[in-house]
Nucleic acid binder design. Sequence first.
DNA 1: GGCCAGGCTAGCA
DNA 2: TGCTAGCATGGC
Length: 308
Amino acid sequence: MKLTIPLPKEYSFEKTIERVKEFEKATEHEKDKKLWRAIRLSSRAIVVGVCKNEAGELEIESHDKLSRFEQMELKEIMTHRWSLEVDLTPFYKRMAQNPILYSTIPDRMGFHIVRDPDLYECLIRTIISQQLNLSFAGTLIHRFIEQFGEKISHLDMWFSSFPTVERVADLNYEDLTTLQLTQRKAEYIIDLSRAIVEGKLDLSSLQQETDEEIMKRLISFRGIGRWTVECLLMFGYGRSNVLPAADIGLRNALQLLYGSDTRPSETEVREFAKDWSPYASYVTFYLWDYLTQQKKISKVTKKGYNER
DNA sequence: GGCCAGGCTAGCA
DNA sequence: TGCTAGCATGGC
């Protein structure tokens, strides 16, 4: 069955899915001009495909019939995932005042942040990604989902939903270290899942808190540092003014963009970012994307040079 | 072969 | 309170 949601103005679906196709190869599969993945509703996991239809709306197709309640829930999850409530116009106006930053915008007009469908998934993905290059992190996430997720068949393909917190809470550390997660990350992931199951940690109850309060509450758990909360704020809670000032990718991007000899420190990043508020999440996201694109270009250039 | 990844913790001064 | 070695492995 199909649902549709209108896209906001300044929304480029094409540019927005590019990044998903690149970084979420493990969970997203393209078929019949739609991007498919498993999504967990409160009642069950389903397989969902999305595309932009001829009317310019987001079209969502589910592998199975959905109840009225499930339809509402799915629309809410998709609105959040694809940042459909975000109007980028004021962000672009602000960026126009900074020519260097603005140089990254024209190639990314309408490019929106793609968030995780749920907070637990976001937390675990972020912990797995700590201190790893994104490509290896993607491999580990893929193994984790394949191993412990629920399998659903659709369009002659198998999809795995993100593992439930109950399932993960029941695992042994060894179940994760065999996937090549480190002993410590295995402990973080399983201990946090147990804390959630036992009611010691309730991610959704923090929804109405301020960024600072969420930071204070979550950072007290083992395995969750500043960076992890910042990612959770951006990709889980959907906060628009997050600055992961110590993030290596953001610092590399600023170094490259400003043509600096050295990588800016966390303090210097805060100096760069003093006029980014209240759009720091978007500036960060655009700079991350700028960095990946530039890396790709330099790789192609090097390859061409070597082949000559 | 060595250094670096969209970090975090424990242990030490 | 602030600093840093160690974690672990793929990619370049």
